[in-house]
């Protein structure tokens, strides 16, 4: 196809080769090309964080990354969090602490939470709240998301 570029991206441990338009957003690559619809889209101005995934271990907003920029990268999406049927501690914590209601921002919120805990394994409530600045949730009022991150921090470092 003229004007397209071949990329190789590892998503949740699986290598994918695809020919993509240079303008294709990573989030559309994940959702429309690979069919990984767990990563959602909440805005078009990089503010809401609903589309957050891990790129080479770092939390990034996948609506702000072009698929071609992810060439050679390792991406983890919500579908890749649970390992051999075992939920990730952050997933467990969101479930346990009622950290989600409609569940739409949740994949992004959990990815962001993982990013926060990677940088700071024992954050204070204030640090968690500041860390969560990258996500907009309209349902929970954030309180139980904060509790979920606290709970996950205890479990992951305990």
């Amino acid at each position: 196809m003229p004007g397209t570029k071949t990329i190789e991206v590892t998503v949740n441990g699986q290598i994918h080769r695809a020919e993509v338009e240079p303008r294709l957003l990573l989030v559309h690559f994940l959702r429309d090309v690979l069919g990984l619809t767990g990563t959602h889209i909440g805005c078009d101005t990089s503010q809401c964080g609903v589309c957050t995934v891990l790129m080479n271990g770092q939390a990034v907003k996948s609506c702000t990354v072009l698929a071609v920029q992810a060439d050679g990268a390792e991406i983890t999406t919500v579908e890749g969090l649970a390992q051999s049927g075992q939920l990730h501690p952050v997933q467990e914590a969101f479930w346990e602490k009622h950290g989600l209601q409609c569940g739409f921002c949740t994949p992004g919120a959990m990815m962001l939470a993982i990013g926060i805990l990677q940088e700071n394994p024992r954050p204070t409530e204030e640090e968690i709240r500041h860390g969560l600045n990258g996500i907009i949730c309209r349902c929970t009022g954030y309180q139980n998301i904060v509790r979920a991150v606290q709970h996950a921090a205890e479990r992951m470092s305990g």
């Binding site: 619809t37 767990g38 999406t77 919500v78 579908e79 649970a82 969101f94 989600l100 569940g103």
Partner: peptide, 16 residues
């Protein structure tokens, strides 16, 4: 929650 925290929800835009 189990479907929503694992990316297995069925939101409208997820339908292909």
């Amino acid at each position: 929650d189990p479907r929503l925290i694992t990316g297995k929800g069925r939101f409208t835009d997820d339908i292909q």
